[in-house]
Write a protein that binds this DNA or RNA. Structure first.
Length: 112
DNA sequence: AAATTGACGGTTA
DNA sequence: GTAACCGCCAATT
């Protein structure tokens, strides 16, 4: 689709669905970033919308949304429990409290 | 309609 | 390593 035009409501609905589907694929012990998810969903400049989607994502989906951090490895602001959940999966942190992205960053499989 | 906000990304100093 | 910016865009005020 045309990435230079505003999202139609239909596209926004599809985007949110794609975001949730991608999050569901993040393996245990790994994390990915908002920007990565946005790009794989087909809207590379919509990383903020990924964050909004996950914030409003219902618990009933039981998605591993704690495995999504920003590009510096910083956990979501105002959600202290996320760090506990990540640590329980074996995620290691840098001295500054961010996720060690070099070890745990997951990227969706490249389509050849 | 205009300004602000935010679970963000990237560059520069 | 940190901090200050700038770009981004739907939702909210």
């Amino acid at each position: 689709m045309d990435v230079n035009t505003k999202m139609t409501p239909l596209q926004a609905r599809q985007f949110r669905a794609d975001v949730l589907a991608i999050v569901a694929q993040i393996p245990c012990g790994y994390v990915t970033t908002y920007g990565t998810i946005a790009a794989w969903a087909g809207w590379p400049s919509h990383s903020r919308q990924v964050g909004r989607t996950l914030r409003y994502a219902p618990e009933s989906r039981r998605l591993p949304c704690h495995r999504v951090v920003n590009h510096t490895g910083r956990p979501a602001p105002g959600w202290q429990r996320q760090r506990t959940l990540l640590a329980a999966e074996g995620i290691t942190f840098k001295p500054n409290g961010n996720v060690d992205m070099r070890r745990h960053l997951w990227q969706p499989p490249v389509v050849l």
